[in-house]
Amino acid sequence: MEIIMSVVIGFLFMAAVYLMLSKSLIRIIIGTGLLSHGAHLLLLTMGGLSGSAPPVVADGVSTADYADPLPQALILTAIVISFAVTSFFLVLAYRAYQEIGTDNMNLMRGTEDYE
């Protein structure tokens, strides 16, 4: 299973990078969303997918059966942080639309020489 997951994660990264290289601002943010999904799945996969019970203490379940709780805690933190950053970016993009009037990254260059 981990092998397949690794390949899928690679695919997610590939799609994310491809989107981030495009010129539309919203597609770039979609790319970052895909990238964080890939990263979260990578964390989960690297922790091992072999546990047979959720990491909640229950009768009749030995410690070896629980899924690894530590990656899950890390992913939970990462999800919240990436959500915060994504929402900030989105509002930033929304404000940029309002002020600049474009979502084309090629028109948003900082260097004056090229204008």
Binding site: S6, G10, A15
Partner: peptide, 13 residues
């Protein structure tokens, strides 16, 4: 580039 990043991540994983 995108394919490279994807392959790299898979191999590292």
């Amino acid at each position: 580039i995108a394919l490279g990043v994807g392959v790299t991540m898979t191999m590292v994983a």
